[in-house]
Nucleic acid binder design. Structure first.
Length: 487
RNA sequence: GCUCCCAUGGUCAAGUGGUCAAGACACCGCCCUCUCACGGCGGUAACAGGGGUUCGAAUCCCCUUGGGAGUGCCA
């Protein structure tokens, strides 16, 4: 049995899309599940699409999420180079061999001629298909035009009749009529191969098996098999993956800046949560488990659990999963991650931020939720007096005014300004007054925060704010109530 | 248009001829509670439609419909 070797073969066109990450993950899992190798190959045969720095983003991302490759451009390996543009001579050599073997031919058709054909096709409401103009040029003519330095491409010679089949581990056997296939270009006029040729040559030379890739390659796979056959190469196993879709209603677009791993990561999604969520998008372990470490994924992964239909990316569920990961963090770990956000929010340094972290850890889904939820600690929001009125807590403007005034009295006298003492003093007051907890605590919390919803209750907020700021805010609240009551 | 693929709740999905058709997210209700969240409990919600095969179909076959992909000197 041969070694299992899978590859992730992105083109350096920018950020790593979430669908690409999933493809890489599955390829990695398949390799590791079988004690095989996972390699990285850069498919940059389209020089027009090259984006500066894109390869580095790929390295960085794969490393960050723990999909460490065993062979690749940055670490080398026995089958390099691993960047296609550096393999240029290899492809040409094999293309020429393919011509000799009758699986390909030189084509001298100009761009203009092709465009004209395309136009005609459009006018006739049909689809352009290369007409085979150069398919049967004589050897001499080809030689003569090559000598003359005419620009050329090399095209695949697909049989006009018959059928071609291939077997996919997931989709089963798929058969197509050769007449629906086209004589695609293998070597471009710039001498570089197209993907259609490079992937076959590289996968063979790099001993890739199985070939794991998106299902968009399903319909061109017969053409690849024809190439393998012409060379007499062993055909690899195929595992085609159903795509990840954007939710129709909501846009998950590049424009919105939230379709790539990096964007999610920067928004405060934990890398483990992203990987975990993405793993479950199109794959199921067959049982109810839904939280996995990378090692657990390797253990649990089986291509039998792969789905054949497209999966819609649900940011909502990923947020939920992220919140679960946040809750699992130790307070210290979470605090460390939250700190930069506190800084951005401009919270005072002397505030007990560790305590704040413990209050918000269970209340946020992603890290970037933090600024909004803590903003009131820096600047007291504007609010209306009717915020004090809450039916469930049985508070009115009147009793809020009375109770808040009493709370201010006892707090004013409190020297040791700790959360515990504040709480104690307020509870004692409640007992003494014989009111419901909420009737006192509600107005205090509202006055302290100016908000309907806060992380933590009255005592926690007062504790965070410190005595000076607390008393200032409570008095503002009292004044608001006074004004509202026309006192 | 042509070719290929796919089809269980709004979403992710289990299910492989006999189940009251799992579970999760979201949503709703109740409990907890000084608010919200967390947590606990409960609920609404699905086999796209039509034909077959079979004693019996979500599971097998065909058609329709819907969705996806390919049809580039992109990958």
């Amino acid at each position: 049995m041969n070694e299992v070797r899978t590859r992730f073969a992105p083109s350096p066109t920018g950020y790593l899309h979430i669908g690409g990450l999933r493809t890489a993950l599955y390829a990695y899992l398949i390799a590791k599940k079988n004690n095989g190798k996972f390699l990285l190959r850069i498919e940059d045969t389209d020089q027009d699409r090259f984006v500066e720095g894109a390869i580095e983003v790929i390295y960085k991302t794969l490393k960050l999420v723990g999909l460490q490759h065993d062979e690749g451009p940055d670490i080398g390996g026995p089958y390099g180079p691993y960047i296609q543009s550096e393999r240029k001579p290899i492809y040409l050599k094999y293309a020429k061999e393919l011509v000799e073997r009758g699986g390909a031919y030189y084509c001298f058709c100009s761009k203009e001629r092709l465009d004209q054909l395309r136009e005609e096709a459009a006018r006739n409401n049909t689809v352009f298909k290369y007409d085979g103009h150069c398919r049967n040029l004589s050897r001499d003519e080809v030689e003569r035009r090559l000598q003359a330095g005419e620009p050329y491409v090399i095209r695949q010679k697909v049989p006009y009749t018959g059928t071609t089949s291939f077997h996919d581990e997931l989709f089963g056997t798929i058969t197509v009529e050769n007449s629906t296939l086209e004589d695609g270009i293998l070597i471009k006029s710039d001498g570089l191969p197209t993907y259609n040729f490079a992937n076959v040559v590289d996968d063979h030379l790099m001993k890739i098996n199985p070939v794991v890739r998106g299902s968009e390659y399903l319909s061109s796979t017969p053409k690849y098999n024809l190439i393998y056959e012409s060379f007499g190469w062993e055909i690899p196993k195929y595992i085609h993956l159903a795509p990840v879709m954007k939710e129709p209603g909501k846009k998950l677009s590049k424009r919105e800046g939230d379709a790539s791993f990096e964007d999610f990561y920067n928004k405060g999604f934990l890398k483990e949560a992203i990987v975990n969520y993405v793993a479950l998008l199109g794959w199921s372990p067959g049982d109810d488990r839904e939280f996995f470490t990378m090692d657990e994924l390797i253990e649990a992964f089986d291509i039998k659990g792969l789905s054949k239909s497209p999966a819609i990316f649900d940011i909502n569920k990923m947020r939920w999963m992220n919140s679960e990961y946040i809750k699992k963090l130790s307070l210290e770990e979470f605090h460390k991650m939250a700190l930069p956000y506190y800084k951005d929010a401009g919270l005072p340094d002397n505030m007990n931020l560790l305590r704040l972290s413990s209050l918000i850890q269970g209340r946020i889904e992603i890290l970037s939720d933090i600024p909004d939820i803590v903003a009131f600690l820096k600047v007291m929001p504007e609010y209306e007096a009717d915020l004090f009125v809450h039916k469930k807590s049985k508070t009115t403007l009147e009793n809020s005014y009375e109770n808040l005034a009493k709370a201010i009295e006892v707090l004013e006298m409190l020297e040791e300004w700790t959360e515990e003492r504040i709480h104690q003093v307020l509870i004692d007051l409640i007992t003494q007054l014989g009111v419901k907890n909420s009737q006192l605590l509600w107005p205090v919390r509202v006055a302290a925060s100016g908000k309907l919803v806060t992380p933590g209750g009255a005592a926690e907020i007062l504790g965070l704010l410190g005595k000076n700021e607390s008393m200032r805010r409570l008095h503002i609240g009292l004044d608001k109530l006074k004004a509202a009551l026309n006192l």
